[in-house]
Design a protein around this nucleic acid. Sequence first.
DNA 1: GGGAATTTTGACCAGTTGGAAAAATGTTAG
DNA 2: CTAACATTTTTCCAACTGGTCAAAATTCCC
Lengths: 212, 212
Amino acid sequence: MAAPTKDRPQTRIQREKQDLILDAALGVFSVHGFRGTTIDQIAEAAGMSKPNLLYYFSSKEEIHRRLLEGMLDLWLDPLRELDAAGDPMPELRSYIRRKLEMARDFPRESRLFANEMLQGAPHAIDVLETELKQLVDSKAQVIESWMTAGKITRTDPYHLIFSIWATTQHYADFDVQVRVVLGKDRGGEGRFEDAARFLENLFMDGLRPKAG
Amino acid sequence: MAAPTKDRPQTRIQREKQDLILDAALGVFSVHGFRGTTIDQIAEAAGMSKPNLLYYFSSKEEIHRRLLEGMLDLWLDPLRELDAAGDPMPELRSYIRRKLEMARDFPRESRLFANEMLQGAPHAIDVLETELKQLVDSKAQVIESWMTAGKITRTDPYHLIFSIWATTQHYADFDVQVRVVLGKDRGGEGRFEDAARFLENLFMDGLRPKAG
DNA sequence: GGGAATTTTGACCAGTTGGAAAAATGTTAG
DNA sequence: CTAACATTTTTCCAACTGGTCAAAATTCCC
């Protein structure tokens, strides 16, 4: 971590600079991926010299690891909040809205995650296989219980979760494309409201219990 | 391009090696992105030395450009095939199926595109602003005409296209995650059939014209 | 088979990269 | 104020990077 000779509590400067570095690094990693990012780029974005940056983090790997950890936690929060005791349709609607808000408010985190996936999750595979899988399994079971109870239409809960992930994160990861295609008139800030309306309708129509 | 002293027709070896290089480069670029890829990596994947590779392509940029061009064409084909004169519901169903087949059969191309998008499309922005935008605009109009005719339910055609892109490409770009979450029992080859069934249902339910 | 053209190789280069070491400068608690 | 510690800068390095070049090896066509 930082580099005090003994393990004292962190100083004010240490906390501030580490946050500054992580923020700068998030911007670079999320665009260029791990291999494509240089320490110099991060250092410049953080407004300091490379050796100075390396005083706070011992390697590029360490910065990346810290970012990935913090991000995965944030990223799974909306799914954790899906409440088995809640009303199914509003619960799923809220989940979609929260995921879309994350894409809007934390696009860099979304892209960092996307980059890691594209590379085959070399740094995150362990977390995926344990934490993520368990969480998704348990929530898939919740969704299935709602189906069994006839509260929502029967479908594949895993692929349902995948498509909620895919559609919401798309607005962060493919932001350029979305803006270009919508054009300057519709590609502004309002695009997230439009997306929210569209996605809620799409999934609610797909999940509303059918007669028979 | 290659490097004959005069501009003669390409030799057999030139065609073969260029294809070999492009194939190898696709594998590397799609995982590590442009900056994260080295010529040496590509050369090794193609089973030749770096100077030998540079005999066929004058720079890393050139290889990347060639790949991106070829890919964008392939990538937009399914949308081009969407036929205004066809029956709306089956047309859209086919579009979804074709896009999913592309994700299954050309995952590297999908990831190459995703990488380019994550970086803000530095090499593809022109094509997006012209070719892609025009194509999507025209197909969005087709979809709107179907809505006006009452053949499908009224919704936002642009966000509809986005969500078809997002959900289908997800199975290529986030393949690791999909496999991990589905586990070894359901993460095998059958996952694409399951996805197809799910996605066709989801979108068909969302688009089926409602009474009133 | 032989000469011309093509393909491959090996040596090389200048710039970049991740990172180490140590000296110089700041900060802060007593 | 000052000693102990924290921070920053300067200098450096070995490995890697994209790319060049001339020579050697191979292929092709008559």
